[in-house]
Amino acid sequence: NITAAIYDEIQQEMKRAKVSQALFAKVAANKSQGWLCELLRWKENPSPENRTLWENLCTIRRFLNLPQHERDVIY
C-alpha cells in the first residue's frame, strides 16, 4: 500500500545512504534524476488516476522494502 509517507521515505533513504537523486532514481526505478524530481513534486497533489505514477511508486516501495544492507550493496 502506497501512502504519502513514501515521499519522506525516499528523502530519508537518500540522506541515510548519502546518495544523489540521480543515483537513487537509477537503482530504485531505473529512471533519471529529472524523473525523480518530477515524481517528488507529485507529493503535493498525487493523482489517483495516474497509473504510471502509482506503478513507479510501487517499484520504489519494493526497493525500499529490501533490507538496508542489500540496498547499500546495490548503491
Results as ranks from 00 to 15, higher is better:
Arg71Ala: 03
Tyr7Cys: 07
Leu23Lys: 09
Ser20Arg: 06
Asn50Phe: 13
Lys31Tyr: 02
Pro46Ile: 15
Ala4Ile: 11
Glu38Leu: 04
Ile2Gly: 02
Asn50Ala: 12
Gln21Asn: 08
Ala22Val: 05
Cys37Arg: 12
Ala17Val: 13
Leu36Asp: 01
Val27Cys: 06
Ser47Thr: 05
Glu55Phe: 15
Ser32Glu: 08
Lys43Val: 06
Met14Lys: 05
Gln11Ile: 11
Trp42Pro: 06
Arg62Asn: 02
Lys26Cys: 01
Val73Phe: 10
Gln11Tyr: 06
Phe24Val: 02
Phe63Ile: 02
Ala25Gln: 08
Pro67Gly: 07
Leu40His: 03
Cys37Met: 05
Leu57Trp: 04
Ala28Lys: 00
Gln68Thr: 11
Ala25Arg: 00
Cys37Ala: 04
Thr59Ala: 06
Arg62Cys: 15
Gln33Leu: 08
Leu40Trp: 06
Ile6Val: 09
Asp72His: 05
Cys37Tyr: 07
His69Ser: 10
Asn30Trp: 08
Arg41His: 01
Leu23Glu: 14
Ala17Lys: 14
Leu53Phe: 08
Ala25Leu: 02
Leu23Thr: 05
Leu36Val: 14
Val73His: 15
Asn1Asp: 04
Cys37Leu: 14
Ile10Asn: 00
Glu70Val: 00
Asp72Gly: 12
Trp35Ala: 14
Trp42Lys: 13
Glu9Tyr: 05
Trp54Lys: 06
Asn65Thr: 12
Glu9Ser: 13
Ile60Gly: 00
Glu44Trp: 02
Thr52Phe: 15
Arg51Ile: 09
Pro48Ile: 14
Asn1Arg: 01
Cys58Ser: 09
Ala25Cys: 01
Thr59Gly: 06
Ile10Tyr: 00
Cys37Trp: 13
Leu53Arg: 11
Asn30Pro: 02
Gln11Lys: 03
Ser47Val: 13
Val73Tyr: 08
Ala17Phe: 07
Ala22Asn: 06
Leu23Pro: 01
Glu70Lys: 08
Thr52Ile: 05
Ile2Ser: 02
Arg62Trp: 03
Leu66His: 02
Gln21Tyr: 01
Lys31Asp: 12
Arg51His: 04
Lys31Ile: 07
Glu70His: 03
Leu66Thr: 12
Val19Gln: 02
Tyr75Gly: 00
Leu40Pro: 01
Asp72Ile: 10
Ile60Ala: 06
Asp72Arg: 05
Ile10Ala: 05
Ile74Phe: 01
Arg51Val: 13
Met14Arg: 09
Arg16Thr: 12
Arg61His: 14
Ser20Pro: 02
Asn45Pro: 09
Glu49Ser: 06
Leu64Glu: 00
Glu55Ser: 10
Leu64Phe: 09
Asn50Tyr: 13
Thr3Tyr: 03
Asn1Glu: 11
Glu55Gly: 05
Gly34Ile: 11
Ser47Met: 05
Val27Arg: 13
Phe63Leu: 06
Ala22Cys: 03
Leu66Met: 13
Pro48Ser: 11
Thr59Phe: 11
Gly34Phe: 10
Gln12Asp: 03
Ile10Val: 14
Ala5Tyr: 15
Ala29Lys: 02
Ile2Arg: 05
Asp72Lys: 08
Lys18Glu: 08
Gln12Trp: 09
Ser32Val: 10
Gln21Gly: 08
Ile60Gln: 00
Lys18Thr: 14
Pro46Met: 08
Glu44Tyr: 12
Tyr75Ala: 00
Pro48Leu: 09
Lys26Arg: 12
Phe24Tyr: 02
Ser32Trp: 09
Thr52Asp: 02
Arg62Gln: 14
Ala29Gly: 10
Gln11Thr: 03
Gln11Arg: 12
Lys26His: 08
Ser32His: 13
Ser47Asn: 00
Ile60His: 00
Leu40Ser: 04
Asp8Tyr: 10
Arg16Gly: 08
Cys58Pro: 03
Glu44Ala: 14
Gly34Gln: 12
Thr52Gln: 08
Glu55Ile: 08
Gln21Ala: 07
Gln68Tyr: 06
Arg51Glu: 11
Glu55Cys: 01
Ile6Tyr: 02
Arg16Gln: 11
Glu38Pro: 06
Trp42Met: 13
Trp54Gln: 06
Gln11Val: 13
Asn1Lys: 02
Phe24Arg: 00
Arg62Pro: 01
Leu23Ile: 02
Ser32Gln: 12
Tyr75Ser: 00
Arg71Phe: 00
Tyr75Arg: 08
Val73Gly: 15
Ile2Lys: 13
Lys18Trp: 10
Gln11Ala: 13
Pro67Trp: 02
Asn65Pro: 00
Gln21Ser: 13
Ser47Tyr: 06
Leu23Cys: 08
Arg62Ile: 06
Leu57Tyr: 01
Asn50Asp: 13
Trp54Glu: 11
Trp35Gln: 07
Gly34Val: 08
Ile6Ala: 04
Phe63Thr: 02
Leu40Lys: 00
Lys43Ser: 05
Asn30Leu: 09
Lys15Ala: 14
Leu57Ser: 04
Asn65Tyr: 05
Arg61Ala: 13
Ile2Ala: 02
Asn30Ala: 04
Glu70Arg: 11
His69Gly: 08
Asn30Arg: 13
Tyr7Ala: 12
Ala25Thr: 05
Ser20His: 00
Arg71Leu: 07
Thr59Lys: 04
Arg51Pro: 11
Arg51Trp: 07
Thr59Leu: 11
Thr3Arg: 09
Tyr75Val: 01
Ile10His: 01
Leu64Tyr: 00
Gln12Cys: 12
